[in-house]
């Protein structure tokens, strides 16, 4: 099959980008989208041109490295599918396809279709962890967890941090990502001691990174390759509101009220 690609080319974060048209000829419908780009890049290299830079790692849909806005949809036309698991049979011969990077101020373009998602790492560092003591693995049933809560925690933990939620959100909000991390830890007993501080710290970091706010469009859930439900954002909001309302009490309990 033959396709016409409109690809965003940008040398680095400082320089302005532009769309460049490429012909992807003799593409097998069994190729993945990234393999199609590999073939195109080999031809570009043979012609002495600069290949198109794109992020990828495992190519089996579980690492969260890849991600391109394909024809106006993050990760392309197939639902619950990362860009690497999208195959060319999802397109028709002769299609014109537009490729753009995730567009958000918090995700500056490094080159072409690669963006810097360190903002997500800083949000995780702000509170997306449990301060559990290091030691041997605990006994499987030492801490009972309700089946429903375990399932919800697992659903949230499937987030691979690809950033498609930010890319698809009309507000470039990272709410779904942060909500997934807060729900993942908040549904488990190990996450309880730091639950309130986690909500405050992670939301504060999310805001500081310059992401937009949630207006409940639901675009994030639609493009999420792991199908993280947008309802988790309500859990994040509930935790954040509760944490804000009870902050004074926790400060008093810590004895900081008299010290400060």
């Amino acid at each position: 099959m033959n396709l016409t690609l409109q690809v965003w080319r940008q040398k680095n974060a400082q320089s302005p980008g532009r769309f460049v048209t490429y012909q992807a000829a003799d593409i097998s419908p069994d190729m993945s989208f990234l393999e199609m780009l590999d073939v195109l890049n080999e031809r570009l290299i043979q012609k002495g041109e600069d290949p198109i830079a794109f992020d990828h790692d495992c190519r089996e849909g579980i690492c969260g490295a890849c991600g391109v806005v394909i024809d106006g949809t993050a990760h392309g036309p197939r639902r619950r599918t990362t860009t690497c698991q999208l195959h060319m049979r999802s397109f028709r011969d002769g299609d014109e396809v537009t490729l753009e990077p995730w567009r958000a101020r918090a995700f500056p373009v490094i080159k072409d279709l690669i963006v810097d998602r360190s903002a997500f790492d800083r949000i995780i560092a702000a509170g997306g962890f449990v301060s559990a003591p290091i030691g041997s693995a605990p006994d499987g049933n030492a801490i009972p967890v309700r089946k429903e809560n375990a399932d919800l925690a697992f659903d949230a933990a499937t987030c691979i941090g690809c950033g498609a939620c930010v890319a698809a959100c009309p507000n470039a909000s990272a709410s779904l990502f942060v909500a997934a991390k807060i729900t993942h830890l908040g549904m488990l007993p190990q996450g309880q001691p730091e639950r309130m501080e986690r909500a405050l710290s992670m939301v504060a970091q999310m805001d500081a990174e310059g992401f937009g706010s949630c207006t409940n469009h639901g675009e994030c859930e639609a493009v999420c390759p792991k199908g993280i439900p947008v309802a988790f954002i309500a859990r994040m909001n509930a935790d954040f509101i509760k944490a804000s309302l009870t902050k004074g009490r926790r400060v008093a309990q810590a004895g900081e009220a008299t010290a400060g």
Partner: peptide
Amino acid sequence: SRAARPIAYRK
């Protein structure tokens, strides 16, 4: 939110 996406998508 406007500031969070300085460059709009073409599509």
